[in-house]
Amino acid sequence: MKILVPVKRVASLDDEFELRDDGRDVDPDFCEFDLNEFDEYALEAAVQIKEAAPEGSVEVVVLTIGPDDADDVLRKALAKGADRAIRVDDAGLEEADRVAIARVIAKVAENEEPGLVLCGAQSADQGNAQTGMSVAALLGWTRAAVVSKLDFAPGAATAQVERELEGGLVECLDVETPAVLTIQLGINTPRYASLRSIKQANAKPIECLTPHDVGLSDAEIGAAGALSRVRRVFVPERGRGEIIAGTPSQQAARLLEIISEVNG
């Protein structure tokens, strides 16, 4: 059985940054890129399932959609226990929104026929919390979001999961498989890759495909497959909250007021 883990290369911004000339995104020079933290947990969950199963019976496949720089996050995932890596190149994917990205992932899933797809609950940069569940919808598979515990034996007809709801409430449920789950932080403790496994990962090949290679038609690629469009990005006028000025004793007095206002 395969487990497919779509992973995203997310950007974190420097404290000050500039927008792209067209005003529709941030200038990437100001971005630090890394593997989406949620995906570390999704990957760890997949690797733990593999390690609990008979040797060789489960293959963990990681997938990213992005430019060749995004190979870094695939190598990181390989170093942390993924067996195979696929990158679908982003040429032609301009204007792709979550749903358009999900179309690519769903096609790869159709080709790979995994028993589970584990996505991150959301991405650390855009945080739409849409992609994984869109993949499930496109595949017509069972889905559950924000999974904080997962018990699954490869081949079983159901998985036992817990979903973490608002306020720390937990729902325990059985879901039919194959399923797409989105994974919450804290479900496990993701491993750090050892230096040796990093070196081994650097030697592994990455399968590089185009959206057409995976079987998407033009009507599904990029803007054509999207349900939304970014019109403009702007830096909100808000910066910082109320600055409490004055001497320390005045500042402390105001702080005590705030404490009693908030705490009632």
């Binding site: 420097d14 404290d15 990437p28 020079d29 100001f30 971005c31 630090e32």
Partner: peptide, 8 residues
């Protein structure tokens, strides 16, 4: 990118 990073 690195010039921006190093400057800070």
């Amino acid at each position: 990118r690195l010039k921006l990073v190093f400057a800070a």
